Simulated scan of single mutants.
Amino acid sequence: MGRRDMLRRACLGAVLAGAAVAMAAAAQSRCADYVPQPKPQNASRDIVGQDLDAILEQGFIEFAAFDDFAPWSFGEKGEIKGVDIEIGKLIAADLGVEPRFRLVEAGENLEADLRNWLWKGPVTGGKVANVMLHVPVNRDFTCRVEQVVFTGQAYRQQIAIAYSETAYPGEVPGTAYFRYDPVGVENDTIADFYLSSLAGGQLLDQIHRYPSTLDAVAAIGTGEVKAAMGPMAELEYARPAVVKVVSPPLPGFGAGRWTVGVGVHFAYRPLAYAVDDAISAALEDGRIQAIFAGYGLTWMEPER
């Protein structure tokens, strides 16, 4: 399984878990079924001295960001780039320290990512970071991972459709179109599962699966598909001039949008507060919105 596939499974698991919990919440209060988790006991020497005062004294802060995850975080010509990387730089600047980034591989699910890169460390190689970027924030999911403070909500993402204006002149295709028209998705993602289960599987013959959302959008240009479905920012980042991106109504899709923030080790709440203050200030003065605009992306207000 490739790194992007694993990342997709991690994010998909978080979003779907949140949706499932939300449905259960109709019958009970938030986290009513919560079972306390074991607290980490001296999990790693790497976390010693990583509180806010130590970071300010050492003069740098370390961020974990997902590898090969454009437009959020990726390497290009020896440089680490992406929207999340720019947000990390804003946080470091607000604290008055140097930002240091580590591109990491995604685990099987979000809990594994948080365990590996925030509060315990991987089984072999690598160490925890001060802040993990691009963490989906769900109010109910946060009850179940006590070792992490979920904070710094910076933007919202949602599933959207990219389509060829040539294929649909004067039209905006919805999911009903894909009973007959080929549509591209990234394999094993939330868009893939949604379309595969829609209308009792009637769309299955028209679904074309690709290694990434970027590849699915590229297939529009080659004529393999007429449209692609995936997270809006990834569609926007990949689109050529002849492709439009829209977010039409998606019937029966309760998990189609989510807020994204950051994660911090639960023991370092002053650091979590400082990080959230930095992001809040950057939202108020438009710096985060400007980052999205610089990458040609639509910024959507998060739930804070």
Rank of each mutant, 00 (worst) to 15 (best):
256 G>F: 01
244 K>A: 14
225 V>P: 00
292 F>G: 00
284 E>R: 15
218 A>N: 09
62 E>C: 03
165 E>K: 12
119 W>N: 08
103 L>T: 13
153 Q>L: 02
222 T>W: 03
93 A>F: 01
93 A>G: 13
4 R>I: 15
231 P>T: 04
287 R>L: 00
38 P>H: 11
302 P>K: 02
205 D>H: 14
102 R>H: 14
203 L>W: 09
82 G>N: 06
208 H>M: 09
78 G>K: 05
262 V>C: 05
276 D>W: 07
136 P>M: 04
164 S>I: 06
39 K>R: 14
100 R>C: 10
294 G>N: 10
280 S>H: 08
228 A>W: 00
71 P>Q: 07
288 I>A: 02
188 D>P: 03
105 E>H: 06
34 Y>P: 06
239 R>F: 05
69 F>D: 11
289 Q>T: 07
128 V>K: 03
264 V>E: 05
72 W>L: 14
268 Y>C: 02
23 M>W: 09
116 N>F: 03
134 H>N: 15
253 F>A: 11
280 S>G: 06
79 E>F: 04
160 A>T: 05
188 D>C: 13
138 N>W: 14
194 Y>C: 10
304 R>H: 10
258 W>I: 12
210 Y>V: 00
43 A>S: 15
119 W>G: 11
175 T>G: 01
174 G>R: 00
40 P>A: 07
12 L>P: 01
101 F>Q: 03
